[in-house]
């Protein structure tokens, strides 16, 4: 138990640090940045209390906001996905979720990809919509959502593959 708390604190700090120092400055083709810190929310253990994950999501979003002067858009998007996460889990994993036995290291690749894609798309849409704050710019919002999501999903997959423990 204690060990996993330390693991999550380390994950929190290192993801925020990487996001702020490295991934906020990539600006591929002018505006495409990956938001890899949502890995923290995506890979948070399923069994834990929902209360904790919603609160931690708000906190990680707000930390990113403080560093990038964006008001509260990251925090809002993170709280949103943390709240709808159980629905997405149920949709992508089906039966396993009902038994509360998901381990992100061992689930099938296809199901994991669905889960990450939905989560990332929702987060990015929310994020860019709040950033623009106008319905007339919806095309630009969708465009940014699409490109940044592809980038984010690819990076999260690469990171999870590199850091996955071979438990089979």
């Amino acid at each position: 138990m204690n060990n996993s708390v330390f693991l999550h604190i380390a994950r929190f700090i290192s993801l925020v640090f990487l996001q702020v120092v490295l991934f906020n400055h990539i600006n591929f083709l002018g505006y495409i940045n990956p938001y890899i810190y949502i890995m923290f929310i995506a890979l948070f253990p399923v069994k834990n209390n929902r209360f904790i994950i919603i609160f931690l999501s708000f906190f990680i979003g707000l930390t990113i906001d403080v560093f990038s002067d964006t008001g509260g858009i990251h925090a809002a998007a993170c709280v949103f996905i943390a709240y709808v996460r159980p629905l997405i889990l149920k949709f992508s994993f089906g039966m396993i979720y009902d038994h509360q036995t998901i381990k992100f290291n061992t689930v099938e690749f296809g199901e994991k990809l669905t889960y990450l894609t939905i989560l990332t798309l929702l987060h990015h849409f929310m994020l860019f919509f709040l950033e623009m704050f106008s319905v007339s710019q919806i095309i630009l919002v969708l465009q940014k959502t699409l490109f940044s999501s592809i980038f984010t999903i690819l990076l999260i997959l690469i990171v999870t593959i590199i850091f996955s423990k071979k438990t089979k």
């Binding site: 929902r50 209360f51 919603i54 609160f55 708000f58 979003g61 707000l62 906001d65 002067d69 964006t70 008001g71 509260g72 858009i73 925090a75 809002a76 709280v79 949103f80 943390a82 709240y83 709040l130 704050f133």
Partner: peptide
């Protein structure tokens, strides 16, 4: 409904911050 209420509260706080920046 504590999860829902907490989300709503935190979401509103972030929206206040967001609107301030605009």
């Amino acid at each position: 409904n504590k999860n829902f209420l907490l989300s709503l509260l935190l979401f509103s706080i972030s929206m206040v911050f967001t609107i301030q920046t605009h």
